[in-house]
Design a protein around this nucleic acid. Structure first.
Length: 224
DNA sequence: TTATAGATTGCCT
DNA sequence: GGCAATCTATAAT
């Protein structure tokens, strides 16, 4: 398996360096079996891979938010287990996909052991492979190959956008094991390590907005 | 049973 | 900057 590298003029450190990925590893279950704040930082720079038959869509994770297992009023798990959030209470390393505002899907990855409901919201990706398909999925006429960062940003910057670009839906991907390379959705480590990470407050929440639980790769142009 | 807010986005002025 | 789109969960009738 090989991720096609998209030739791009790099506007940021090394985040778009060629991916020599003859055999990247999937992150193991133990990676996710930790405090969401630790997992969130560690996920920055990893590669989200969406397999569609033989084709692959992939993007580097550049922005995430941590939602804590207990005592986090902003988390979906705050009121306990429901038909929507049950995945969060299962084992770590599984996709939690929910539908929001009647229009958009958002992708999270569960962390902490069984019965503890922490998770990480994936908020932005730097597109790596399958950009044309992403543009098609997003209904963008231009194939995002015009080299303009401004238009490419619209592919995968924002939690709703990246789900649409990768064709992620609740019906198909909620509960998927992201530690398995055979999954339609999994997360790879290609050895890239962010140079600098910053923590800020989370976006769009009203309940406990003061905690710095949003993490970004400093300077990456695909951060929202 | 009905109302309202929400981990968002795109299009309008 | 305002607001519509319109599913899901929860609070209020």
């Amino acid at each position: 398996m090989r991720l096609l590298n998209h030739k791009s003029k790099n506007t940021n450190q090394r985040s778009a360096t060629p991916l020599a990925l003859p055999r990247v590893k999937a992150l193991p279950r133990a990676f996710y079996n930790r405090d969401p704040r630790v997992v969130a930082r560690a996920l920055l720079g990893k590669v989200l891979v969406r397999r569609v038959g033989r084709a692959q869509l992939a993007g580097r994770i550049v922005e995430v938010e941590a939602y804590l297992g207990a005592g986090d009023a902003a988390a979906h798990s705050a009121a306990g287990r429901t038909a929507r959030n049950f995945v969060l209470f299962g084992p770590p390393g599984h996709a939690y996909v929910y539908f929001i505002y009647g229009n958009h899907y958002c992708l999270n990855v569960s962390c902490l052991p069984q019965s503890e409901a922490g998770c990480i919201l994936i908020r932005a990706l730097e597109p790596i492979a399958g950009l044309k398909q992403m543009a098609r999925n997003r209904g963008m006429r231009i194939a995002a190959s015009d080299g303009l960062p401004s238009s490419r940003r619209l592919l995968t910057t924002g939690p709703g956008r990246l789900c649409q670009a990768l064709g992620i839906t609740r019906a198909r991907h909620n509960g998927v094991d992201v530690t398995a390379r055979k999954s339609e959705l999994w997360i790879a480590d290609d050895g890239f390590r962010p140079r600098r990470i910053a923590a800020t407050t989370r976006i769009g929440i009203t309940k406990s907005p003061e905690q710095p639980l949003r993490y970004v790769i400093v300077g990456n142009p695909y951060v929202s």
